[in-house]
């Protein structure tokens, strides 16, 4: 759907007086019309494993920004800690962003690092393919969204996501996930996890713009994505990712 269609449909919806409340919808339509063109952007994120210090500020900020249930599970973004011992055994756990945790000194560590995770905003999203009602969809600017008004909560998308990025929101009873903070993007702000990351381990950018931090990131680093064999074509790009991560 190109932009003209988008706006035409928009106008149609508003004039049909259907699902949108009058004023705010009108205001947003104007804003989208004037300042934001979905077809002119295509978003992606870069994550540098060597820079992540595992402070968990991204997890905490994401929960605040996106009203994710404040329980120790359900995350739109989370950080995993990998410890690989000299005998090649691997142990992994998810960071607890609510407290700094203990001083961690393990013996016989071969290598150890943190891996931030989030929805990969796949170019070939399996979740969109399987959604029976088309409630989850890819926008022109490359973000996968869930229509919380139409999702029936069948959870097929949660089963189909190879990355565990989706969860059933216990309050709305519909599928929920990272949106790259879509409501911030359109207003020119960064996704909140990128905003608060103290080490710039997360880099955000528009792949359609000539110069963006993401452009430099993908030029200067060797890039890997998660589970490439599944052909989902993630748009979250990792630098210095370890082969043990999946």
């Amino acid at each position: 759907m190109d932009r003209r269609d988008f706006l035409k449909h928009l106008g149609w919806v508003i004039s049909s007086g259907g699902i949108l409340g009058g004023l705010s919808a009108d205001a947003w339509a104007k804003m989208l019309n004037k300042t934001y063109d979905t077809t002119k952007h295509y978003y992606g994120m870069g994550i540098d494993i060597d820079k992540c210090i595992g402070c968990g500020r991204c997890m905490q900020a994401c929960k605040t920004e996106n009203a994710v249930p404040a329980v120790p599970y359900y995350f739109r973004t989370w950080v995993e800690r990998y410890v690989i011992k000299t005998d090649r055994t691997v142990s992994v756990n998810t960071l607890n962003s609510d407290e700094p945790g203990d001083v961690l000194v393990e013996k016989d560590v071969l290598r150890s690092f943190f891996v931030p995770k989030l929805c990969n905003q796949c170019d070939h999203p399996p979740c969109v393919q399987v959604c029976p009602v088309g409630a989850t969809f890819k926008t022109d600017d490359g973000v996968i969204l869930v229509d919380s008004k139409r999702c029936i909560g069948c959870r097929y998308c949660i089963q189909a996501c190879p990355y565990g990025a989706r969860y059933l929101n216990p309050e709305t009873r519909v599928a929920d996930k990272c949106t790259f903070c879509y409501h911030r993007l359109v207003k020119g702000l960064l996704p909140v996890c990128v905003e608060v990351c103290p080490k710039q381990a997360r880099v955000f950018g528009d792949m359609k713009s000539i110069a963006s931090p993401l452009g430099r990131f993908t030029r200067m680093n060797k890039i890997h994505v998660l589970k490439p064999s599944l052909n989902t074509d993630p748009k979250v790009y990792y630098a210095n990712l370890d082969g043990e991560v999946n």
Partner: peptide, 26 residues
């Protein structure tokens, strides 16, 4: 039509997404 046209529904869904409140000012 808004109950059976995916294009309309996606447009309105994006509007709702865009209209969400910001917490972190930048």
């Amino acid at each position: 039509p808004e109950m059976k046209e995916p294009a309309l529904q996606q447009a309105s869904s994006m509007e709702r997404e865009v209209a969400k409140e910001i917490q972190y000012a930048g």
